[in-house]
Design a protein around this nucleic acid. Structure first.
Length: 480
RNA sequence: CGGGGCGUGGCUCAGCUUGGUAGAGCGCCUGGUUCGGGUCCAGGAGGCCGGAGGUUCGAAUCCUCUCGCCCCGACCA
């Protein structure tokens, strides 16, 4: 990949995002496959990091991994009325296989509630079979009309949790438990603050009773739905006849949940932290934490510098960029745009003084430090960066969150906001969970992102549109 | 799926209006030189001009169709 300039955020945020993804070796458009992308090593390693962190938490909360088929009989999708209505426009369907037209077409899974419902029905007879706590790591296909790398692609990688419970209360607990897992990973691993909340009825998952989300704010002020957790009620239980006999001997439908996060998280990560110089990754997700760039003028210097660089690198677990024919300056730019958290410079001056230069990717600050104890210093710097990056992102979220007390005010704030121009805000306002309100927001392309679980503002107030009393302010924003 | 823009060495693009058999810069390779934020010099490799069809003596250039990418809009993790 040639190293071209990166469009500044201020000039065109969407162009900047694409430049960062490309120049950071994260991914590139698949080109020959519409709407799809190739995830490159630097990008896939970030996904592996998220996979590792999430999977550990799923296991810790009692879930087991499973795998269901990619292909789902078309009739399955139709069993849940809302579900089919929601997904029909974005399905890819296999109609010919083995050279013959299929009797019943298969859809390529857009999500797996239906096929899992079918098998749940076979596996559940008694309340003793419950709960079923499963998770699947998979790819899905949704025929999107407009794609952006990581944020929305035709095919994407995700995990989908699917659970079945004997009571609604237990299912509801599960829904919130997993939402908290997502919030934990977002904030403590990705350094991306999120707002946990309930989706409005118009925005909920097709087939759910209620959907919950974590919403993050990107640097352009747009909202990104970073994860969802759904209370499916008994909708799929009824559609797929998933029944169990209770302790009391009654036949009842199971209460199900589903929850997922996707490679979209990587897009959120990029738009949370990166700058005009390229990718910035939080240390906990950076595939490589530190690189040493040796600086040497003459051959005899080179030998000594490289020897010291490798010795220090082994101590830290860092990589030495000993490529020849590349100036140190070129190497600094190279690693900078790939988001390496820490770059260490080691040259003749440092050899003489016993020092080494440490540069932080997030703040760009350089420090001259003794080589002695540099491993511990790198480790503590990485810890500090992780904390500072979350703090900076929280600060930005706070600075761009405003209160509004009339619908005109909301509209004034958000009307001219676009992904390219930026200037987006989270507008906190009292609004009823009602289709009329959602429709009014749609006039200026904004949506209720969610109704926060925790009210950080002034409690109840009158809905700006219906005038009815609602118990807290909701998050209104433009979103990806 | 509608509107707009764009597909020419790896990348960014010129050439297209006024058809005559392909260029620049960057990157890449070789050698030398340099090295504390994109060194410099010399030599070199690399393109059936997105694809298919048509018009023509002749097409990157004109026409038709098609595929893909980017942006905007309606739909969505």
């Amino acid at each position: 990949m040639a190293e071209s300039p990166i469009t500044p955020r201020q000039k065109d945020f969407a162009a900047w995002y694409q430049d960062v993804v490309l120049q950071g070796d994260m991914a590139e458009p698949a080109e020959i496959v519409k709407g799809c992308m190739v995830i490159r090593p630097n990008g896939y390693a970030v996904w592996e990091g998220l996979h590792r962190e999430l999977d550990a938490r799923f296991k810790a909360t009692g879930h087991e991994n499973v795998y269901f088929p990619l292909l789902i009989p078309e009739s399955f999708l139709k069993k849940e009325a809302e579900h089919v209505e929601g997904f029909a426009p974005e399905l890819a369907v296999v109609t010919i296989a083995g050279g013959k037209k299929l009797e019943e077409p298969y859809v390529i899974r857009p999500t797996s509630e239906t096929i899992i419902g079918h098998f749940f029905a076979r596996w559940v007879q008694s309340h003793r079979d419950l709960p079923l706590l499963y998770n699947q790591w998979a790819n899905v296909i949704r025929w999107e009309l407009r794609t952006r790398m990581f944020l929305r692609t035709t095919e994407f990688l995700w995990q989908e949790g699917h659970t079945a419970h004997s009571t609604h209360a237990e299912a509801q607990e599960e829904v919130l438990r997993m939402l908290d897992v997502y919030a934990d990973v977002a904030e403590n691993i990705m350094a991306m603050p999120v707002i946990r909340g309930v989706k409005t009825q118009t925005e909920k998952f097709a087939g759910a009773l209620r959907s919950f989300s974590i919403e993050a704010m990107m640097q352009n002020g747009l909202a990104l739905q970073a994860g969802t957790s759904h209370d499916l009620g008994q909708n799929f239980g009824k559609a797929f006849d998933v029944k169990f006999q209770s302790k009391e001997g009654q036949l009842e439908y199971v209460w199900q949940t589903s929850w997922g996060v996707s490679t979209r998280l990587i897009g959120g990560l990029i738009m949370s932290h990166s700058d005009d110089k390229g990718l910035v990754l939080p240390p906990k997700l950076a595939p490589k934490k530190a690189v040493i760039v040796p600086i040497a003028r003459k051959d005899e210097e080179r030998t000594a510098v490289l020897e010291a660089a490798h010795r220090i690198a082994a101590d830290i677990g860092a990589k030495v960029d000993d490529r020849e024919g590349q100036s140190p300056g070129a190497k600094f730019f190279h690693w900078e745009r790939r988001g390496i958290p820490v770059v260490l410079e080691l040259g003749p001056r440092d050899l003489a003084s016993g020092n080494i230069v440490l540069k932080r990717r997030d703040t760009g600050t350089k420090e001259i430090l003794p080589q002695e104890g540099i491993a511990a210093k790198v480790a503590s710097t990485l810890d500090t960066m992780q904390i500072d990056m979350l703090a900076a992102a929280k600060e930005r979220l706070k600075a761009n969150t405003v209160l509004a007390n009339s619908i005109e005010e909301v509209e004034d704030i958000l009307r001219d906001v676009t992904a390219e121009k930026g200037g987006g805000k989270f507008v906190m306002a009292h609004l009823k969970d009602d289709a009329v309100c959602d429709a009014r927001l749609k006039e200026f392309k904004a949506t209720v992102r969610n109704i926060p679980l925790v009210d950080e503002y002034d409690g109840a107030g009158k809905c700006l549109i219906t005038g009815e009393t609602v118990d807290r302010r909701v998050v209104i924003a433009k979103s990806y």
